[in-house]
């Protein structure tokens, strides 16, 4: 009896947004009297970080500090339309809508600054610290707080912008099947290193190597967290989770956290993650969606690693000790010693 080590890999190509498109998201942006830019969205942040991404896109486009951006996702009844945070679409669709809205708002901001400074708007630039200044004459400048006050109370202007991103719906050509299925695809490869105990059938994932081509990682820390949290969920699907474990009747299945098997903090593989960046033409600053795909590649990679370790080819998840042992038994029957 031994602990057998194996290594396997799997790759995934994953489309960003709804298949065949037709899924718009909107963003509205306006400056308050004191120069805070409120980005109104109906896109929900459930921890994936869309508020951070939206704030980054708005700040970058406006040319203002991120502290000047407030993202409001409070109310889907009154907010601008969002198709939803699913299909790995948030960063791509919402990010693009925010950039469009912020670009319009930036245009107005520069127009008002031009009036305020009595120069041409084309001669103005932002420096990312909150000032709008004349190119080549840095002393001639106005701070966004003063500018927003002047816009409201002196010029009667609203510094605002509208944005929407729609991947136009595509229908397959019946004769050829030709279509435009997605805006862009992210790619990933995971290598799993496992240890299989051929006496107990227990599989332990020792290491995961995750490589993700994400277009552009707008926030590398959050992207890495998504990759590794998603990989954990992949390990969980591969080895633990099922609502129909061993029992003949569905009635005996788990109904709650007490009976539903999940890996705990002691079941953690060591993860090594690498982000590759090949910006997508239609992505917000080149970004693609990597939400859902992060749970995908680890599962077949682990299955392949189990095969490499002990010769058992498993095709049904989760890869439980019982299934591994049955597979080992079958191998022994095939090849009697």
């Amino acid at each position: 009896m031994a602990k057998l080590r194996g290594r396997g890999y799997a790759s995934v190509n994953y489309p960003t947004g709804m298949n065949l498109g037709g899924d718009p998201s909107q963003a509205l942006i306006h400056a308050t009297t004191t120069g805070t830019f409120v980005v109104s969205l109906s896109s929900v942040d459930l921890g994936q970080g869309i508020k951070t991404i939206a704030a980054q896109c708005a700040a970058e486009t406006l040319g203002l500090p991120i502290e000047n951006v407030l993202v409001d996702t409070a109310d889907t009844d009154t907010g601008p339309h969002c198709m939803g945070t699913f299909a790995s679409r948030g960063t791509h669709r919402v990010g693009n809508a925010v950039i469009m809205a912020a670009a319009e708002a930036r245009g107005v901001m520069l127009e008002v600054a031009a009036e305020e400074l009595e120069v041409d708007a084309a001669d103005l630039e932002t420096d990312g610290t909150g000032y709008i200044a004349v190119k080549g004459a840095r002393d001639k400048r106005v701070h966004i707080t003063d500018l927003a006050l002047a816009a409201h109370f002196k010029h009667g202007r609203t510094i605002s912008g509208r944005g929407i991103y729609l991947k136009e719906p595509s229908t397959p050509v019946p004769e050829t099947g030709e279509m435009d299925p997605d805006s862009c695809q992210a790619h990933a490869c995971t290598v799993a290193v496992v240890e299989v105990d051929d006496e107990t059938g227990v599989v332990e994932v020792l290491e995961l190597f995750n490589t993700y081509e994400v277009g552009r990682a707008l926030n590398p820390a959050m992207a890495t967290q998504q990759v590794e949290g998603g990989a954990w969920m992949g390990v969980s699907h591969a080895l633990f989770e099922t609502t129909e474990p061993y029992y003949p009747a569905r009635d005996h299945g788990p109904r709650d956290f007490a009976g539903y098997l999940m890996p705990g903090p002691a079941d953690l593989p060591v993860q090594h993650s690498l982000l590759l960046e090949r910006p997508a033409d239609n992505g917000p600053y080149g970004a693609k969606g990597i939400g859902e795909m992060t749970a995908n590649a680890p599962i077949p990679a682990i299955a392949n690693a189990i095969f490499d370790a002990c010769g058992v080819r498993l095709t049904a998840m989760p890869f439980t000790p019982e299934r591994v042992l049955r597979g080992l038994d079958a191998l022994r029957t095939e090849e009697p010693c």
Partner: peptide
């Protein structure tokens, strides 16, 4: 933390 469930982070962070 073994009695605390987290479904997002993978526990490591």
């Amino acid at each position: 933390i073994s009695g605390n469930v987290c479904r997002c982070t993978g526990y490591r962070p």
